[in-house]
Design a protein around this nucleic acid. Structure first.
Length: 342
RNA sequence: UCGCGUGAUAGAUGA
């Protein structure tokens, strides 16, 4: 049975909810794992209604099921429903608190998140770290630091979350102090530090941290690549690039595309765009931006109109590009045609 | 008692 459970989970992760459901229906008898795995598969793929239906159909509901439902609504941005479910749930598990705190913070209600957090009596490491991260997202490093200091226990993730806060804040002295105090340096911490050092132009130190890592990943290589490229160490950047040629990661390729665009090689950006394995909204925005900042307004326009979806960044890139090239009227037209919301 | 399910951290795009 639990092999079938794993199968449902696997299909869910691949985005094949129909197949997941098919396997789920053959499981007999289903245990609590089967039910919440099925619910998780729908949740992962954004099928809020189906996930809720699974919850409703459950013969019995344990903590995990309740947490999953709170998390489902919270992540879908339906905070009111999430809170109602939370109030109705039999226990107030830290996992539910955590979902609510994160979603509140993400919506910009940091203070509400904090007061909700303060009302929880049995906080665990994850909930504390979620609150810490919420402060970091709002660049409130002081708040993040005080959550960190007050936590009864910390794990790698808590340390990394605070490191990430200092890294984003750009205070290298504090970053350094905290980094030296860390019990373990894993790739998450190192990558955050490399990015911060790169932004500050401290290449030698970034290289040093890069060398500390037991093994490189696409993520750490991208950070190092950008550190080099943004500080004009182009041969070194090129060297990292060669090591990433076979990556299937969108972020890697988008970073490459951006760098070539910024150095004035739009054709290379274009080639990367065409050859890369997958593209997302950020990739498209970067491509439009690359055309725009190289003065290729027509190509920028053309790309913009072929975009499967657009967001504020896309519109902004296009209209500032037009404005900077003297096409003030066209820029206003773009600006005016932006629909409110999103 | 253990094993499969829920919530937290790093790299890419505009201002």
């Amino acid at each position: 049975r639990y092999l079938s459970n794993l199968l449902v989970q696997m299909y869910g992760k691949c985005g094949n909810v129909d197949q997941a459901r098919r396997v789920f229906e053959t499981i007999q008898p289903k245990n609590t794992f089967s039910w919440s795995i099925m619910m998780g598969a729908f949740t992962l793929n954004g099928h809020v209604h189906d996930a809720k239906a699974v919850f409703d159909a459950m013969p019995s509901r344990d903590v995990v099921a309740w947490n999953a439902l709170v998390g489902l609504f919270a992540r879908a941005g339906m905070l009111e429903s999430a809170k109602m479910v939370f109030d109705k749930s039999p226990g107030w598990d830290p996992a539910s608190w955590s979902s609510l705190v994160m979603e509140l913070a993400q919506k910009g209600h940091l203070d509400e998140a904090k007061s909700l957090f303060d009302r929880c009596l049995h906080k665990d490491v994850i909930l504390n770290t979620a609150m810490l991260t919420a402060f970091v997202q709002h660049r409130r490093i002081d708040g993040a630091k005080s959550v960190f200091d007050l936590m009864p226990q910390r794990n790698v993730v808590s340390w990394n979350a605070l490191i990430s806060g200092f890294a984003k804040g750009g205070n290298l002295k504090h970053l350094r102090e905290l980094f030296d105090r860390m019990p373990h340096w894993d790739s998450v911490a190192c990558t955050a530090v490399i990015a911060a050092l790169g932004n500050a132009g401290r290449i030698e130190e970034a290289e040093l941290v890069y060398g500390l890592m037991a093994e490189q990943s696409d993520v750490s290589c991208t950070a190092m690549f950008l550190a080099y490229a943004e500080n004009e160490h182009l041969e070194d950047a090129e060297r990292i690039f060669s090591g990433l040629k076979h990556s299937k990661d969108v972020v890697v390729w988008t970073a490459m595309l951006v760098v070539y665009g910024q150095k004035g090689f739009v054709e290379s950006s274009q080639k990367i765009f065409r050859c890369m394995p997958t593209r997302n909204l950020v990739t498209w925005n970067a491509m439009v931006q690359a055309y725009a900042e190289n003065g290729n307004l027509d190509l920028a326009h053309a790309a913009f109109h072929r975009m499967p979806a657009t967001d504020v960044v896309s519109w902004n890139a296009l209209s500032t590009a037009l404005a900077m090239n003297g096409e003030i009227d066209a820029a206003w037209d773009v600006f005016d045609s932006v629909r409110p919301e999103k």
